[in-house]
Amino acid sequence: MGRMKFLCDIERCIDCSGCVVACKEGNHIPVRVNRRRVITIGQGQPGEKSISVACMHCSDAPCIAVCPVDCIYQRDDGIILHDKEACIGCGYCFMACPFGAPQFPSGQVFGARGSMDKCTFCAGGPEETFSVKERKLYGQNRIAEGKVPLCAAMWATKSLLAGDADEVSDVYRERVFKRGSGANAWGWNKAYKNR
């Protein structure tokens, strides 16, 4: 079985936030929860770069290590899912995660945190596949449908690659091979400056 991975090609990402909106709308994410977000460095300067990040579906994931309910688990294909009905919203996974991926909707009694929510790689959750409950709690299960995740499917510049790690790195390698990377990448410098 393959190992699912994301790769954001920062030479292509233009901070259009299509991935963020696609994820939010397509999965009916509650307010104030962002499963995916885009960060930009050097905004407005030459060489500005953006990257889109959600849950990294880590190997040896810190979030799994700290959860007191043991409700986060990793599938054989590397996707990390969690059981919202067992989660107690303690926030430990958020503190352990290097990427700030786990999110918490508020709006419970005293503004308390409810169950954690994070990127599911669009693979639903522990509920029965394609069930109404699964959809309601976790959003779409596109992996079971054989589709790429929403965010990766929506991308105009195809900078976000999602899927089997080998395939993803093949696509990326081919891209880099064709266009070069870093100083040799196609862009202003190559077209005009370094002639």
């Binding site: 920062i10 060489g47 503190m95 870093g182």
Partner: peptide, 24 residues
């Protein structure tokens, strides 16, 4: 060149993970 990928990824890393190795 500002388009050095490694530098860019390093900066992103600092933004995303911060000093995870310290307290995280």
């Amino acid at each position: 060149t500002p388009e050095n990928l490694t530098t860019a990824y390093r900066q992103f890393n600092a933004l995303f993970t911060g000093e995870w190795q310290q307290y995280g």
